[in-house]
Amino acid sequence: MKYQHLIAGAAAAGALALILTGCVPNNQNASSGASATTVNVAASDNACDLSATTAPSGAITFTISNSGSDVSEFEIVAEDKLRIIGEKENVGPGTTPKYVAQLEPGTYYTSCKPGMVGAGVGETKFTVTDSGAKIVPASDKKAIAGAVAQYVSYAKDQVGELVTDTQTFVAAFESGDVATAKKLYPAARAHYERIEPLAEKFPDLDTDLDIREADLDAGATWTGWHRMEKDLWAPAGYTPLTADERKTLGDKLNSDTKKLYELFYDTSFSVTLGDVSNGAIALMDEVATGKITGEEETFSHTDLWDFQANIEGAKVSFENVRDIAEGKGAAGKKLVSQIDADFATLSTTLGQYGSLDSGYALYNDLSTDQIKQLSDQVNALAEPLSKLTAVVLK
Rank of each mutant, 00 (worst) to 15 (best):
A181V: 06
K183S: 14
K183T: 15
L184H: 10
L184S: 15
L184Y: 12
Y185G: 02
Y185E: 12
Y185A: 05
P186W: 03
A188G: 07
A190V: 14
A190K: 09
H191C: 12
H191Q: 13
H191K: 12
Y192Q: 15
E193H: 07
E193Q: 13
R194Y: 15
R194Q: 15
I195E: 05
I195W: 04
P197G: 06
L198Q: 13
A199K: 13
E200K: 14
K201E: 09
F202L: 11
F202Q: 14
L205F: 10
L205T: 11
T207S: 09
D208R: 10
D208H: 05
D208Q: 09
I211D: 13
R212G: 13
R212P: 09
E213G: 13
D215C: 14
D215F: 07
L216V: 08
G219N: 08
A220E: 11
A220N: 02
T221N: 05
T221L: 10
T223H: 02
T223M: 06
G224M: 11
G224F: 08
R227I: 00
M228K: 02
M228V: 01
K230T: 01
D231Q: 04
W233V: 01
W233F: 14
W233Q: 00
A234E: 02
A236W: 00
G237S: 03
G237A: 02
Y238G: 01
L241S: 01
L241P: 02
T242I: 03
D244C: 02
E245T: 00
E245V: 02
E245W: 01
E245K: 09
K247C: 08
T248Y: 00
T248W: 00
T248F: 00
T248K: 08
L249G: 00
G250H: 01
G250M: 01
K252I: 01
K252V: 00
L253N: 06
S255D: 03
T257V: 15
Y261W: 11
T267R: 08
V271A: 09
V271I: 06
L273N: 06
G274N: 13
G274K: 07
S277N: 09
N278W: 02
G279A: 04
G279C: 10
I281G: 04
I281K: 11
A282L: 15
A282D: 12
